[in-house]
């Protein structure tokens, strides 16, 4: 999958000779062009969000954030994201374990199922979940327009993240380290707790960060499933959208900035985790 955290660590170890060289004229030009493109597409627009949010001054910003409905949305989004990330840490590690250590017929299908939430359009994800957990559910479970709809939608879209960061690390674990622990008297559980888990923690942290950021940003899957009911099932991105639709760009930018700050925090964490992982060697 996409997540380069583990694989960068791996590449660091197996890196062959070849230090990066200094920029030549051609590559310098290429870099310049790329930077202009990247700025026009990503950096400047994101800067515009932050600037617009700051335009009204700190008071206006704070006022927007603490608006009752908005604040409720932020609270809901963050708390649900935390909850879901917690579940993902456990389930993601477990699923990765099963993928790496177990072998059974149909494992290929499992791999496809795990990647599906990443490739599926979010609006379709909403429809998909609605089929099983909405009014016409064959299971009789109807969580449409309830807070648990937010939980289920988040769980769906964040499914691949922890699994895909943990899986390569598990695959690389050398079997003789576990045998060494066994020969020294450690039970299977002790070996997992003291030897395997510590090696996994950076990967789990990376996956958790990505999972959290994804959940907090989610929009599409909630449209049909949660009904976007204020104070009940309305998430932060919905608030941003309603501000946009009301042409209240300052308010939209303010709330958007909150989301950006969270994303920024995630990236910082990821960078720190990456550095720790390559140091371990």
């Amino acid at each position: 999958m996409v997540l380069a955290v583990a694989s960068e660590g791996r590449a660091g170890r197996t890196k062959r000779l070849g230090r990066p060289g200094h920029l030549t004229k051609v590559s310098g030009l290429g870099l310049g062009v790329s930077l202009i493109w990247f700025s026009l597409l990503v950096l400047i627009p994101l800067a515009a969000v932050v600037t617009t949010a700051a335009e009204g001054g700190w008071d206006a910003f704070w006022h927007t954030i603490t608006n009752e409905q908005t604040f409720a949305a932020i609270k809901l989004t963050v708390s649900q994201a935390f909850l879901v990330t917690g579940v993902n840490i456990v389930m993601g590690t477990l699923i990765a374990w099963v993928l790496v250590r177990d072998s059974f017929f149909g494992k290929r299908v499992v791999e496809v199922l795990i990647d599906l939430p990443f490739a599926l359009p979010t609006i379709v994800a909403g429809l998909v979940l609605l089929s099983l957990y909405g009014p016409k559910s064959p299971l009789g479970i109807d969580i449409a327009n309830k807070p648990s709809a937010v939980t289920v939608a988040f769980l769906f879209v964040t499914l691949p993240f922890v699994v895909r960061t943990v899986q390569p690390v598990l695959e690389e674990l050398e079997g003789d380290v576990e045998e060494a622990a066994a020969s020294l008297g450690a039970s299977r559980f002790t070996t997992f707790r003291r030897i395997i888990l510590p090696s996994l923690i950076p990967a789990i942290a990376a996956g958790a960060a990505l999972s959290f950021a994804r959940a907090v940003s989610e929009y599409g899957s909630l449209v049909l499933l949660s009904g976007n009911l204020p104070f009940k099932t309305e998430v932060t991105s919905v608030r941003v959208l309603s501000s946009v639709e009301n042409n209240n760009t300052e308010a939209a930018a303010a709330v958007a900035t909150v989301l950006l700050v969270i994303s920024l925090a995630v990236i910082v964490i990821l960078d720190i985790v990456q550095r720790r992982m390559s140091r371990r060697g």
Partner: peptide
């Protein structure tokens, strides 16, 4: 990868 799609849209509109 970590930015909300709504925020992306807003940024481009701005």
């Amino acid at each position: 990868l970590s930015v909300s799609p709504i925020v992306v849209g807003l940024a481009l509109v701005l």
